[in-house]
Every structure is written in structure tokens, then in C-alpha cells.
Design a protein around this nucleic acid. Sequence first.
DNA 1: ATGAAAGCGCTAACAG
DNA 2: CTGTTAGCGCTTTCAT
Lengths: 343, 343
Amino acid sequence: MTVFDVAAEAGVSLATVDRVLNGRKGVRPATIGRVRSAVERLGFKRDSFAAGLATRRQERFCFMLPARGPNSFMNALRESVAAAAARMEENRVIVRILDYPAFDEQMLCRRLAELDPRDCDGVAAVAIESPPVRQEIDRLVARGIPLVTLVSDVSPSRRAHFHGIDNKAAGRVAASLIGRMVHVPRGKIAMVVGRMTLHDHADRRLGFEQVMRREFPQLALLPPIEGLDDSTVTEKLVGRLLALNEDIVGLYSIGAGNRGIIAALAHRRPSQAALPPPVTVAHELTPHARDALLSGLFTAVLHQDQEQEVADAIAALRALNRDEADFPARTVRLQIFLRDNVP
Amino acid sequence: MTVFDVAAEAGVSLATVDRVLNGRKGVRPATIGRVRSAVERLGFKRDSFAAGLATRRQERFCFMLPARGPNSFMNALRESVAAAAARMEENRVIVRILDYPAFDEQMLCRRLAELDPRDCDGVAAVAIESPPVRQEIDRLVARGIPLVTLVSDVSPSRRAHFHGIDNKAAGRVAASLIGRMVHVPRGKIAMVVGRMTLHDHADRRLGFEQVMRREFPQLALLPPIEGLDDSTVTEKLVGRLLALNEDIVGLYSIGAGNRGIIAALAHRRPSQAALPPPVTVAHELTPHARDALLSGLFTAVLHQDQEQEVADAIAALRALNRDEADFPARTVRLQIFLRDNVP
DNA sequence: ATGAAAGCGCTAACAG
DNA sequence: CTGTTAGCGCTTTCAT
């Protein structure tokens, strides 16, 4: 069952069948119909190996990530991208990793501006929410380089898709878990973000506060503190917060810097250590978060499958590159890990 | 960068390069070394499209599932298999779906016995735990047809892999959720299984009881009831149980038949309806479970990604078919859905 | 608007 | 043990 058989059945040549199959133009409607019905009758399915071999195009994509730093989530993401790059190489997809200093909008803009349509067929970027970035993304798209956002979105912008979890839902889930698991009648809830300009962190906070206010009004929300995704900074700030508020019964770690959270929780002052530890929900299952979960220091960890995010982003870029407008972008499933289902 | 270049660089022929690349025997160690280093030097990567095209083998696998019935989890699984079958067709993999009457060990055995190595290169089966089944699986493998278990394992047996979630862990997670979310000092916990001969159900119960007993001894475990994965049966049994025990504060639905659980919970007698509803954890995100979750009737649903299970099973069968002994079988990640992250 | 012919890079016979 | 040769089924020029 090959294109050849279809050609014979339809009474046309190989080339015409190919044109119809791939929606190329320059075929009379009547002929299209004949080929279509031949395909139908024979139950023809294209052999993707042969198709892949015959098209010798190479696709070149760029991943724009924050530079290597203390944020283990981002480091892990970089590994995922590198692994995907290696795997995709045999599918004629070349993935290059570029980076910008974390939180640095200006450098991100500059890096995006440098991209040349002649050696880059698409970009996946962990973005920062800001007008200049949005503008630069739009300019990139105008130049003919499609862009998808990864992990953290920029919206509204001309980016084609966002690949990541539903961060508002993540915040709501965290609130549900904490609210239902806190057993005291009242108390305070702390939030730690990396930085508010990160769209994903802002969304998580939004969802969290929404559910907290509506369903657990007896728990008081402290204003969020910014730990810059850095565990040293985070430890200092959280330590101070815990010392100042003896009655913190819940803690939501929205960003990175979990090592700092763990350290602060582990070193609570004796007066606090007597109380039950706050119900703590963190993000990203790094090795540290994993240990904190196993030791009972964290109650739950909300995680996103980075491999899937990366794979989805590459799939989307390929589709964009082939002008498949109807590519279905899916939201990466939020994963909840408790002590008993740690991977 | 092709095998041809590698051949030239190593000073051998195409065929020899191919032998080395694919680990075929009949090449002198010295030659192997020359080819390897040429590959290394040139950074050669095999083009999987060309490789796929050149091997014209067709793989034919069978999925052995319980017959279509009232169990929506199994119906959904069947859909997943059908979808995967369609997708794999263009990769030269043909998947056939076979079935046996649910719970019927004898028929399962008979169906397995009928399989012929001449038209089946591997089997993925949702199994039943019993000596005859185990024996029949071993016989199948002896006849040269590799088998992997799907969703529910049979162990020990000569099946190559199990593809599904860690069911003991699932039970432990359910216990953690219920235990931490029940706010009364004491009460009873109910368990509903499909049938104890299903390995996955038995495992979940094990994990559940283990954590319940150890961490929440103030909650009393009622003996599990068997609903046969049928919602009519389940509704009757659970209704009776709820009527007899006013102080049920937690409910773990281990198998299918969620519709029955939902009905029973929704129709609690007025005297009970005044109390807070039991903290309920169910399995399998069917549309009904989803609605129950959204309406607050279920507290959490534990789910497994069927698409991934099926994809993994097919990948494993392909590997077995190519005698890749070191294929890494992964455990499908247990998913936890709360009201706010329902897909 | 349609057809003929030349590969794409690899694997698999078969021959040495 | 190693080399030669003929495709796999599709896409892509180039002719018509």
C-alpha cells in the first residue's frame, strides 16, 4: 500500500498524489477528488519514515533560558532541554540553548533582538512579564520567528502558545491542601515568591489568595515576601518571618529557593518547634524538596513535568514551522506529590 | 554526515559500519574499534527516518482487555488503546484489541492459549491474579510471545514488565489524604473494592491499611466490601453500609463503580446529611468522578495516565521484539486531582 | 495542471 | 569476517 498504488487506482501519477496528500496547490478539483477517493478506498496511510527521509529539511530552534544559577528548577529544565535536544537530533531537529541573566529583562530583550530568521526557525523562552519584553516578542514574531513561552507566560503578546501548568489552578490547589489540613481554628498563612514580575509566580499567588479568602477566611494571609529564587535570601527572610509570627500555620512556597525554606523551617526556635509545623506546600520537585517531603517538613509538592513541557514546546515549534495553524496546545498537568508518591 | 562518510573515515564498507552500529556480530574487535572512533570523530548520528524506511518489518501486538461493560475506566482504556493503535499504524505497528469477560479467569486463559506466535509478536494484558492465569502467561512466554501486564499485574510470573501505577503507594496516598483531612477525633473508615482477585485493588488496600493503622489509629477500618466494579451493586452495598454506620468519616473507593458511590453519598439519610460528608478518595477520573469532585462530593481522585500506560506498553513490546533486554520499564506517575485541578 | 525520474540514508540479501 | 548491490516509500526537481 504505497503512493504508487494510490496513483494507479486514481489513474494519475505519483507527483499528483503527493500534491493532493500534502495539500499543495496546482491540482484540478476533479483530480483531487479522484485521488481522495482512491486513498479512501485503499485505506492508504502515509509511511512517516519514508516521508521523513525524503524531506531533507533541518529545523533549528532556540531555547532561551535564564542563565545557570542557584535555581535548581531552572537547572533541571536546562537538563531536560539538553536531553530533548540530543534525542531530537536524529529527527533532524537542532536545538540550541541560549541564556540571559535571571530576572534581567533588558538582557532578555537584547538576546531576543539578536535572533536571525536565517538560522533560527523558532524560539521557546522562559519569559519575564514586562512591556519591553512583550514588545520584543512581538517584534520577533513580526520578523518571522515564531515564539512559544515556556514555564512562565507573557500575555497578551503574539507568542503562539504557552507551555506549562495552569498556575492559577496550582495556587488554588495549594490553598485547598493547606486549608483542609490545618487543624487549628485560626492562624496565619505565609507566601514566598521569587519575584512578582514572574508571571507564573503572580498567577499562583492569585489562585492561592482567591481560594484562601473564599473558603478559609479564618486563616489570615500575610503579604508575600520576595526571595529572588535564591535560597540564601529566602532563608533569611523566612527565618525572620517565622520568628516574628509564632502563629504561622501554613506556608506556600511559590517559587524556587526551597533549600532556604527548608533550612528556615528546620531551625525554628524551640518555642515554635513545640507547635505542630506549618502545613507547607512548595513547588518543583528538586532533590531538596524531595527530601523535605520525605522527612515530613513539606506536606506536599506541586510539580510540573519539565520533559513534557519541553517536548510540547518543540512539537509546537515544529507545527508552527509547517504552518499548521490548528496545533492543539495542551496545558501540562499539575502533579501533586505527597510523601507516599515521591518519584 | 551519513554511514557512507563513516565508512570512508574508518576505511571499511557500508555494511561493516551497519553491523557495528547495530551491534550485529561477525566483526573483528579491531574493526569495531575503528568504526566506533570514526563515529565519534565525525559526531555521526543515525537518521531514524532512513533507518525506519529500510527495515520493512511490521510488528503485530495484541491488547487483551476485559470486554466492554459497565466499567468506564476499562472503556476509557479501550479508547486509549484504539487511539494509540491508529497513531502507531504509520510507524508500522499493528495493534489488535482482544477481550475476555470481566473477572473471568478461565476465558482469559483460553484467549491467551489461542494466541499464535505467527501472527502476534507480543501481548499487553489487563490480568487477573490467579494460578491458572499465571501458568497460562508463563506458557505463552515459553511459546515465544512476550507479555507485559497493564493496569493490574500478575506476579510472580514470566511477564516482562508491569505498566501501571504503584498501587501500594496509591493506597498510602489515599490514607494520608483522608487521615489528614478528617477533623473529628474518631470515626470509621470504609473501603470499597471491585474484587480482591484484582492485584491492583489488593495492593491499594494494602497500602491504605498500612498507613491508616500506623498514622491514624484513632480511625477504625471497616472490612472492605466488594462492588464488582459495577455501580448498581456498589450503590446498594455502600448505601447499606452508610445507613448502618452513622459515623463513617472517610471512604476509599478502590475500584470502579464510582457512579454507585456517588449515588449512595448523595442519598444519605437526612440524619446523616446534617453531618459533614465523609472525606472521600476515589480512583479513575471518569466523567462521573469528575463531576463528583467538582461538586465537592469527592475530596480527591487518584488517577493514572492511560495514554502513557498504553504507550509504555507498546514501547516495551517493541523493545522485547528487538531483544533489547535493558529496556527501562517506568512506573506510571500517580496523579492526584482535587477540585481545582480537574482536567 | 500533470508526469518522469532522481535521490534521501539506511538495512538486508547475497557474494566473496 | 567483510564488501557489493538493490531497494524501502516518499518528496522534489525538472519537463511537458
